[in-house]
Design a protein around this nucleic acid. Structure first.
Length: 440
RNA sequence: GUGGGCGUAGUUCAGCUGGUAGAACGCUUGGUUGUGGUCCAGGAGGUCGCGGGUUCAAGUCCCGUCGUUCACCCCA
């Protein structure tokens, strides 16, 4: 067993798959920047106490320790970040004096969680995260805006259709208060399991764990069953006859998000009262996004509003943001062959070498193409031309350039067409200049 | 962490109730005297995950171990 085995949960891509990932990341960054989000990077590690205070997920934090650290000496208490929101909140507090608010940023980096891997769940994975964070108060319209940025970003990708399910925690918790349930946080976590375990099991959990009466449990399930792609859910919820101030606040906020989103990106957002989110720092709007045909992956893009995540005691910095699970989307699609690249190298032209004495001429030709922006490489050996063409073919390089006393000829190896060209004039068709993503 | 499936060639897999290892694809050489892909003929490549046990004999049965995968948990 001398050949290394892959490490479960740490996916590594082959060159042609990486080309797909690279272009997806570039696309996302471009869209985020079109919407005025600035890019930042944060370090891979955070102090453990920072990570551990933010909910259940933190139990899966990878801890960092120097090999040389003495056995008895306490380690520094560092861990790899498990998302990009918590590091961002820390970054905002640390740099609050140097940032201008409202601050909008995007971040595309790997995250680590020590969970058992599964399809769409990895121990090292990439997230693309956008957030808007303000000082003191965060206007509600940002809850619409971040959703629309994501709509723009995801709809521009060659992936199956996606739909964003939105809820508001005030709405749910206000409703639970209104029916007389005390531990509304716990009720939320239980309702979040509805899709997985079904209504009967949820009702039982509500009765057992938050001491709900069967009637209260049924009211919660009635609420959770409501969903709509327009603001009609408001009427449906009012019809349940529960009154509560927090509920009203949530209704107003959610209605605003759904209405504005429908106007700007019809069909993208649906109000769904069973969305709750496991992370406990969310305080208002919460989002989950599913990809058509890949519902079993769970949410491929989630987030929400957090009013108290970033606070230094004096100032609080409420924010709202969403994270796209790049690995969760891409790795399954790549493995299923639904996404691929047109070639596995950036090279557009391979310059053939007739014999080794001609190599410097071939290098010079290649350099002339490169100067004009055409990715070019020179054949590794002066093998038979058939072999050199095969070299290009196996990598998906579309063109081979031949040179002799009479001039230079370019061959499109897909069609077999070959023509005499001037290397200082010739351009490949735009679609062949760079590798492209193709869907299968 | 708990429970189930699976580890055989580069890859995907076959190998019956135990009898000293097979296919397809890929790779490679030639047919093709410097232009690939098709076709034809040849070739290389495996300590059957690892360790132990049962047996005259183990890829096959048993135990352990490691890896992997699925479900639970949780989430991107």
């Amino acid at each position: 067993m001398s050949r290394p085995q892959p490490l479960s949960g740490f996916p590594e891509l082959l060159p042609r798959q990486r080309i797909v990932e690279q272009q997806v990341v570039e696309h996302l960054g471009r869209v985020f920047e079109l919407h005025g989000f600035a890019n930042i990077q944060t370090r891979a590690i955070e102090p453990l106490d920072q990570l551990l205070s933010k909910g259940e997920t933190s139990k899966e934090v990878y801890v960092l320790r120097r090999l040389q650290a003495d056995a008895d000496g306490g380690d520094a208490g560092l861990g790899l970040h498990f998302d990009l929101t918590v590091p961002f909140a820390r970054y905002v507090l640390e740099n609050s004096g140097k940032l201008n608010f409202p601050f909008r940023r995007y971040q595309i980096q790997p995250c680590w969680r020590g969970e058992r891997p599964q399809e769409g769940r990895y121990r090292e994975f990439w997230q693309a995260d956008i957030d808007v964070i303000d000082q003191g108060e965060l206007p509600a319209h940002y809850e619409v805006e971040v959703a629309l940025v994501i709509a723009d970003a995801l709809r521009g990708l060659p992936i199956p259709p996606v739909r964003m399910h939105v809820n508001n925690r005030k709405l749910s918790q206000g409703f639970y208060q209104g029916v007389g349930i005390e531990d509304t946080e716990a009720a939320l976590r239980i309702i979040d399991k509805l899709d997985k375990i079904g209504p009967d099991a949820v009702a039982k959990l509500l009765v057992d764990e938050v001491k709900a009466s069967p009637e209260q449990a049924e009211a919660c399930l009635n609420l959770a069953s409501i969903s709509a792609s327009d603001t009609s859910f408001v009427g449906d919820i009012r019809a349940l006859g529960v009154t509560n101030d927090l509920l009203e606040e949530g209704l107003t906020e959610l209605a605003a998000v759904v209405e504005a989103a429908n106007e700007a990106a019809p069909g993208f957002v649906v109000a769904d009262m069973k969305i709750a989110r496991g992370l406990d720092y969310y305080t208002g709007t919460v989002y989950e996004t599913v990809m058509e045909g890949y519902e079993s992956l769970g949410s491929i893009c989630s987030g929400g509003r957090y009013d108290k995540l970033a606070s230094d005691g004096k100032n609080t910095y409420p924010g709202v943001g969403l994270s796209i699970g790049i690995s969760r989307i891409l790795v399954p699609l790549l493995q299923a062959g639904k996404l691929d690249a047109t070639r596995e190298v950036p090279t557009c032209v391979l310059v053939a070498v007739a014999n080794e004495d001609e190599r410097s001429n071939a290098n010079a030709l290649a350099q002339r193409l490169r100067r004009r922006g055409v990715p070019t490489q020179v054949s590794p050996s002066a093998a038979k031309f058939g072999k050199q063409i095969k070299f290009a073919d196996k990598r998906g390089i579309p063109f081979v350039l031949f040179a002799n006393e009479e001039g230079t000829q370019i061959k499109d190896i897909r069609s077999g067409d070959q023509e005499t060209i001037d290397v200082d004039q010739w351009d490949p068709p735009v679609q062949d200049l760079y590798a492209r993503i193709v869907t299968g």
